[in-house]
Each structure stands twice: as structure tokens, then as C-alpha cells.
Simulated scan of single mutants.
Amino acid sequence: MSSKNHLTKIGSVVEEVLKADFHNVKILRVDVREDVDADGDDVLLISVVFEGRPKDLDAKMLSGAVRNVRPRLTDIGERAFPMFSFVSGRDVGLGHA
């Protein structure tokens, strides 16, 4: 298990990379949890909360999120595979996002 500080750092790295890729969408929050998949491999469950509607997200950017984020995670010593979910702020009660 990683420390809370390491999970916070992972969230910051994810947010930094995605902000550079998602030009028309404001990222409100990135939540990171550790888990283990069905094969026993370590994974990171990363929930990205954004302002706007799901149709505002570019499908190409969504599909490239893992490819763009993973090398940066490796740079900070994280080996778990990132699994993303993207949720509108409105869906998690963050106002009129």
C-alpha cells in the first residue's frame, strides 16, 4: 500500500498530464485508490471529475489517457496500471458543472 502522500502525488501527476491534453474541459478533482485486479495485479482506480458534460470530452483524449499518463507514473516509481473513469462534476454533486 502506498502512503497518502504518494497517492496525492499520483493525483497531481495525472491532473497535470490531463490538463495539457484536455483543452476544453476543466478538471475539478482527481481521486486515486489502489486496488488489485482479478489476476492479482496492482491497479490504480483513478476518477477524474470534470466540469461540463460527457459530450465535452474528446474520445481520442480519453482513449489516450493511459498512454500519456503511464510514463509519468513510472517516472515517480509507480508500477500499478492506471484505470480511469471520467465523471461530470454535476454527477457527483459539484454544482452546475
Rank of each mutant, 00 (worst) to 15 (best):
S2V: 04
S2N: 11
S3K: 13
S3F: 12
K4E: 11
K4Q: 14
H6A: 04
H6R: 10
L7N: 04
L7M: 10
K9N: 13
K9W: 00
K9G: 11
I10A: 01
I10D: 02
G11Q: 00
G11I: 00
S12K: 15
S12T: 08
V13K: 03
V13Q: 07
V14M: 02
E15S: 01
E15H: 00
E15Y: 01
E16W: 02
E16I: 02
V17K: 06
D21P: 01
D21M: 15
F22M: 15
N24T: 13
N24W: 13
V25Q: 06
V25L: 08
K26E: 11
K26D: 15
I27T: 07
I27H: 06
L28P: 04
D31Q: 01
V32R: 00
E34V: 07
E34C: 05
D35C: 10
V36E: 11
V36G: 03
V36F: 06
D37G: 10
A38W: 15
D39P: 01
D39F: 05
G40D: 05
D41W: 10
D42Y: 10
D42R: 14
D42G: 11
D42N: 14
D42L: 13
V43H: 04
L44M: 07
L44E: 03
L45W: 00
L45K: 14
I46G: 01
I46W: 02
V48H: 02
V49C: 00
V49W: 01
V49Q: 00
G52L: 02
R53P: 04
R53W: 04
R53H: 13
P54Y: 12
P54R: 13
K55E: 13
D56G: 10
D56A: 13
L57F: 03
D58F: 06
L62G: 04
L62Y: 01
S63D: 13
S63P: 05
G64V: 05
G64Q: 12
G64C: 06
G64L: 09
G64R: 14
A65D: 03
A65I: 02
A65T: 05
V66M: 12
V66R: 15
V66T: 14
R67M: 07
R67T: 10
N68R: 15
V69Y: 01
V69I: 09
V69F: 01
R70T: 09
P71T: 08
P71R: 10
R72L: 07
R72T: 04
R72Y: 07
R72I: 02
L73V: 06
D75Y: 07
D75P: 05
I76K: 06
G77E: 12
G77P: 12
G77I: 14
E78A: 08
E78L: 04
E78I: 14
E78S: 05
R79G: 09
R79I: 11
R79D: 09
A80K: 14
M83L: 15
M83R: 13
F84S: 05
S85N: 10
S85Q: 15
S85I: 10
F86E: 00
V87H: 02
V87L: 06
V87K: 04
S88L: 05
R90K: 14
R90M: 09
V92Q: 08
V92K: 10
G93L: 10
G93E: 05
G93M: 08
G95L: 03
G95K: 05
A97I: 11
A97T: 13
